[in-house]
Amino acid sequence: MSGVRDTLQRFRTRLGPGPRSFLAWWGQALATWLPVRWRVLLGLTGDRLLFQRQDDGIEMSWLEGTQRHRLAQLPAAITADELRALLGNRLAGLPRWWLIPDGMALRRRLLLPAAAAERLHDVLRFELDRQTPFTANEARFDARVLGVRPDGQLDVELAAVPTAAFAAGVSGLGDLADGLAGGDVEDAGGAPLGVNLLPEAARMTRQAPQRGLHVALAAVAGITLVLAAWAVLDNRRAAADAFASQVDSRADAARQVAAQRQQLADLVTGTTVLSQTSARRPTALEVMDDVTRRLPDNTYLEKLAIEGDRLTLIGFSPEASGLVARLQRSPLWRNPALSGALQPDPRTRMDRFTLTAELLGKQDPAAAPAGGADAAGRD
């Protein structure tokens, strides 16, 4: 047994003290909870120990991925407790498989429809008596899919062992037969085929060590994820509220700017209209000059007022009734008329008049001399 211990010690040294990190250890433990098919699909099948009866002993091998390492030759009477003491914590946690010798199993290559992949074991149960000398009740059988042909058919390899021979082989493992997780068939090269002939009821499902701790850690991780998601959601909500208030404040500022811009536009428009209107109307100096030219010398004004487009003249003249004719044809106003009756002034012996006219826009300077000449002729 000392030689067995030395051999196992070398392999334990090769394996290392255990998982290289907490996450690796936890990941390996969580992987043991997955169904076998899921572990195969995800590549999480892991290592396993293979046991095979050899003469008066039991050969123990370690399957690492696709490589088989022969560990030690165990005595046939070894017990499960003795084996556990020899293996240590790391190797003792590996599933144990019986490796069926190649010559003990009957192997056949089959072509099956693609639909048979979902219920392969049930299909083989009906095909077993046609492909082998045994019925489904007389043999332990399983199959592996080697590939899919271009026409969709499955290339399957069937492996079967008579029930009596299978039971005898399992009993040859002694006390180790109670903890088996499966029974695989050895191919010509000494590697397992990848089938499991052990009935499901007899398979040993190994629980992950420290399962309670794993459940607690999983619960903590779940709660942490929920709290993290809640924190992220709360941060997003706070950011959205801050962004909304920022948008509202900027919208208010934008509305104020738009109102000020509209006021400025209205002011510019009004100023432009006023400037254009003022530019079209004659200036007060031009009106006064034209009035002075058209009134006779014996007439003087008391008031000259320009309100919008209305011209008002108030004054005294001995020829008040003829002033309307003198103010006609001016390019600066139109429709001159006396407003109210003439009022004689005994002091000056003149008539007090009030005369109004409607101012016009500026005309072409070419028209002004004609009016001016006509006024001069009348003077």
Score class of each variant (00 low, 15 high):
residue 257 V to S: 13
residue 166 F to D: 01
residue 64 E to G: 07
residue 41 L to C: 08
residue 283 T to P: 01
residue 281 R to I: 06
residue 293 R to Y: 00
residue 315 G to I: 04
residue 328 Q to V: 08
residue 69 H to T: 05
residue 350 M to D: 02
residue 376 A to H: 03
residue 238 A to T: 06
residue 26 W to S: 11
residue 337 A to S: 15
residue 291 V to I: 15
residue 374 D to S: 09
residue 66 T to R: 14
residue 142 D to L: 10
residue 199 P to I: 11
residue 163 T to K: 08
residue 354 T to N: 09
residue 262 Q to I: 04
residue 295 L to V: 01
residue 99 L to E: 02
residue 120 L to P: 00
residue 14 R to M: 12
residue 134 F to K: 04
residue 206 R to V: 12
residue 82 E to M: 05
residue 303 K to T: 11
residue 218 A to F: 07
residue 156 V to A: 01
residue 240 A to M: 08
residue 206 R to A: 07
residue 179 G to K: 07
residue 219 A to H: 03
residue 106 L to P: 00
residue 46 G to L: 11
residue 19 P to D: 08
residue 358 E to W: 02
residue 335 N to I: 09
residue 38 W to I: 06
residue 351 D to N: 14
residue 44 L to A: 10
residue 229 A to C: 05
residue 167 A to M: 11
residue 59 E to K: 11
residue 193 L to I: 13
residue 304 L to P: 01
residue 46 G to V: 12
residue 371 G to A: 14
residue 323 L to F: 02
residue 6 D to S: 14
residue 280 R to H: 05
residue 286 E to F: 07
residue 209 P to A: 12
residue 163 T to R: 10
residue 283 T to C: 06
residue 348 T to Q: 13
residue 301 L to I: 01
residue 207 Q to W: 10
residue 170 V to G: 05
residue 130 R to N: 10
residue 311 L to A: 01
residue 226 V to A: 14
residue 245 S to L: 13
residue 41 L to F: 07
residue 160 A to P: 03
residue 44 L to C: 06
residue 377 G to A: 13
residue 149 R to T: 14
residue 135 T to I: 03
residue 330 S to E: 05
residue 168 A to Y: 07
residue 167 A to R: 15
residue 303 K to S: 13
residue 176 L to M: 02
residue 68 R to H: 08
residue 117 A to L: 08
residue 379 D to W: 00
residue 9 Q to V: 04
residue 182 G to P: 01
residue 261 R to I: 00
residue 195 V to D: 02
residue 62 W to M: 02
residue 16 G to H: 05
residue 85 A to H: 12
residue 312 T to N: 09
residue 284 A to V: 15
residue 159 A to H: 04
residue 299 T to R: 03
residue 40 V to S: 15
residue 222 G to I: 12
residue 285 L to T: 14
residue 98 W to R: 08
residue 180 L to H: 01
residue 285 L to Y: 12
residue 72 A to C: 05
residue 78 I to E: 03
residue 35 P to L: 09
residue 271 T to H: 08
residue 180 L to Q: 02
residue 29 A to F: 02
residue 335 N to K: 14
residue 291 V to P: 02
residue 275 S to I: 09
residue 148 V to H: 04
residue 224 T to C: 15
residue 32 T to A: 15
residue 238 A to F: 03
residue 377 G to W: 00
residue 261 R to W: 04
residue 259 A to G: 05
residue 214 H to G: 10
residue 97 W to Q: 05
residue 78 I to M: 15
residue 149 R to H: 14
residue 50 L to D: 02
residue 51 F to K: 01
residue 257 V to W: 09
residue 218 A to G: 12
residue 158 L to C: 04
residue 270 G to F: 04
residue 182 G to L: 01
residue 204 M to E: 10
residue 187 D to I: 01
residue 340 G to Y: 05
residue 349 R to Y: 07
residue 368 A to F: 12
residue 273 V to Y: 06
residue 227 L to S: 08
residue 218 A to V: 12
residue 141 F to E: 00
residue 258 A to K: 09
residue 320 A to C: 11
residue 119 R to D: 14
residue 287 V to K: 00
residue 203 R to F: 06
residue 1 M to T: 11
residue 144 R to E: 10
